[in-house]
């Protein structure tokens, strides 16, 4: 029986009076692609951010590959280097070119040599379909191109897990597909992925698991087909009817 690569136990996160997470138990197996959906404020992003410890849980534990992130002895930077994260607003480093965005962490975290990291940057930019944009600054790229550079930047660390926090929500409609295509290709390579997204087409095509969250709890955890065909909870039905209407 393989061990889960991500495991959360009774995860709680409070922001003052707001209880963003109220006891989430989740296990993600290696090579699984899990999509998290749910209304805004349901705790999806908070859960994702707890997985790489950008948010410190108020209560409970997160285990990555069996390592407890709450353990004081855990080297959090080393764990984070194994978890790539893609943000809604891309968060590219605006003072660096696309290529430098991809090589910076390779240099200072992975301590890779110049030639090696440049080669990796070239390969990744080709993989996300914009090899010609290597020496362009993020400000001169479209949203879709920026997000693809952001994905390449995360992949350059050779992560075991990729987290996507609404990666297409800030994009114009015509750019969503180019980002989803890159994510779809990534899913095919056997990458463990946890994606907060409302792109149902992507969920159906790539996800082997879909998790519906509401009010800080996991309400349903099943396959995409099962969720569409047979949502068990009223809240899930209501939510699906809202996002699938058009």
């Amino acid at each position: 029986m393989p061990e889960p690569i991500i495991k959360t136990v009774d995860l709680h996160k409070h922001f003052g009076q707001v209880q963003a997470l109220r006891g989430v138990d989740l296990e993600v197996m290696p090579a699984q692609v899990a999509v998290i959906i749910g209304p805004s404020g349901s705790g999806k992003s908070t859960l994702l951010r707890c997985i790489n410890h950008l948010e410190k849980p108020t209560h409970g534990h997160v285990y990555i590959d069996g390592v407890d992130l709450e353990d004081k002895k855990t080297k959090i930077n080393a764990v984070r280097a194994e978890i790539g994260m893609v943000f809604q607003l891309f968060n590219l480093f605006p003072h660096l070119t696309a290529r430098q965005n991809i090589t910076l962490a390779q240099q200072v975290v992975r301590k890779r040599r110049d030639a090696e990291r440049e080669q990796i940057a070239r390969d990744l930019l080709a993989r996300v379909g914009i090899p010609e944009k290597a020496d362009v600054y993020p400000g001169q790229l479209s949203g879709g191109q920026q997000q693809r550079v952001a994905i390449a930047r995360a992949l350059a660390m050779n992560p075991k897990i990729m987290l996507f926090d609404e990666p297409t929500s800030a994009l114009d409609p015509e750019m969503i597909k180019e980002v989803l295509d890159v994510m779809l290709d990534l899913a095919k390579t056997g990458m463990t992925m946890v994606c907060v997204t409302h792109e149902m087409g992507f969920a159906r095509a790539a996800a082997n698991r879909i998790i519906f969250m509401d009010e800080g709890l996991v309400i349903e955890d099943t396959t995409p087909e099962e969720l569409y065909r047979n949502p068990r909870h009223e809240r899930t039905k209501l939510f699906l009817s809202k996002i699938l209407q058009h």
């Binding site: 950008l54 280097a81 194994e82 978890i83 790539g84 968060n91 962490a105």
Partner: peptide, 12 residues
């Protein structure tokens, strides 16, 4: 988000 992006890449 800049600090978060950098930290999420494993930077101190």
């Amino acid at each position: 988000g800049q600090m978060e992006a950098a930290r999420s890449l494993g930077m101190s």
